[in-house]
């Protein structure tokens, strides 16, 4: 993936502490031009701190950070003409309408596309005449998204952008982000839900305790993902337990449940077919399961039990398989 061009976002050994809390502890990751980069991490891992340093709102304590080749702290103004930001928890000016807020943000940022603004408002099904104070969280999110997506910018910094959106609107969001990519824009998409990032990202970085613990394409990360499979077969499926990459096999009458490593799925399929599959359900892993498996704990904030409740509308069923 490393090309000769300079990355849109470059960080090296980035440090930031708040009092005694070390929020970022030597963060290293790059976003190449034109890619959608999934920035995954549990709550409190340092995602928002990173994004706010990239915006020049916070000053890093150490390390290097470049956005579009510029220093985000020193060159904030010229840099902000080239990027748009959607915060995770959007607070808007209560006395403005949604439409006024969108226009204000677009005009303050610089160049924007009026037609794109109008179509986006329509596609996100937003009434721009309502006062911000009457909007739900999801509608405030839409205002911030339209204000960001209708700008002529090179880079989009989206901090948990779909947190308040319903599943239908999330589909619209994914379409729009793909259009943005076709226009040549780069996107940094932060989330704590693997499924949301998986659908869009070319590259994924996983942050934990202020450090990147994994980085690569989705297939690079296959070795980390373990799919949960529930299968009903004509013949007993006990023999599957001997296959490499199969874990936690349990048999209940005709129903068999097991986990399989992402990169060994191809070897599994012929064996399954020979057993006579009547039904098959496969659940992708959640970020929390993934972190649990590889690092013992998900994070300081999320317990194994907490990992079971995912706020995503299309999140898969959750299972606990802690040894």
């Amino acid at each position: 993936m490393m090309s000769g061009t300079t990355p849109v976002i470059f960080t090296h050994d980035l440090m930031k502490s708040f009092g005694r809390v070390q929020a970022l502890d030597g963060l290293n990751f790059n976003v190449e031009a034109g890619e959608i980069h999934g920035f995954l991490g549990p709550n409190g891992a340092g995602k928002s701190t990173t994004i706010r340093i990239l915006l020049g709102l916070l000053r890093s304590d150490g390390g290097t950070v470049k956005v579009c080749g510029q220093d985000p702290w020193r060159d904030a103004v010229s840099l902000h003409k080239r990027l748009a930001y959607v915060p995770g928890d959007v607070e808007l000016w209560p006395n403005l309408t949604g439409g006024e807020t969108i226009d204000m943000m677009l005009q303050l940022r610089g160049q924007y596309n009026q037609r794109r603004r109008d179509t986006l408002i329509e596609r996100f099904d937003l009434d721009p005449r309502k006062k911000n104070r009457t909007y739900s969280k999801g509608n405030r999110q839409k205002v911030a998204l339209v204000a960001a997506l209708a700008s002529h910018v090179d880079l989009l910094l989206l901090d948990e952008p779909t947190a308040g959106l319903d599943p239908l609107m999330e589909v619209v969001f994914q379409e729009v982000i793909r259009e943005e990519q076709r226009e040549g824009r780069s996107v940094l998409l932060s989330s704590h839900i693997l499924a949301q990032v998986e659908a869009l990202s070319d590259q994924i970085s996983i942050i934990r305790h202020g450090k990147i613990v994994e980085s690569g394409t989705l297939s690079d990360l296959r070795h980390m993902t373990r799919t949960t499979v529930v299968v009903e077969t004509d013949h007993p499926a006990d023999s599957l337990a001997t296959l490499p990459g199969v874990h936690n096999l349990r048999v209940e009458v005709s129903k068999t449940t097991f986990d399989v490593d992402g990169d060994t799925v191809p070897h599994l399929m012929p064996k399954l077919t020979s057993l006579g599959v009547r039904s098959l359900v496969a659940h992708p892993p959640t970020l929390e399961q993934l972190l649990m498996r590889h690092y013992g704990t998900a994070t300081d904030g999320i317990t194994a039990a907490g990992a079971g409740t995912s706020p995503s509308g299309n999140a898969p069923e959750q299972r606990q398989d802690t040894p």
Binding site: R52, L55, G56, L57, A76, V77, S78, H80, K81, L83, A84, Y85, P87, V90, E91, L92, M105, L108, R109, G110, A144
Partner: peptide, 10 residues
């Protein structure tokens, strides 16, 4: 923060 993230500058 939202205002400063535009090109007006802090």
């Amino acid at each position: 923060e939202l205002g400063v993230s535009t090109s007006m500058g802090r």
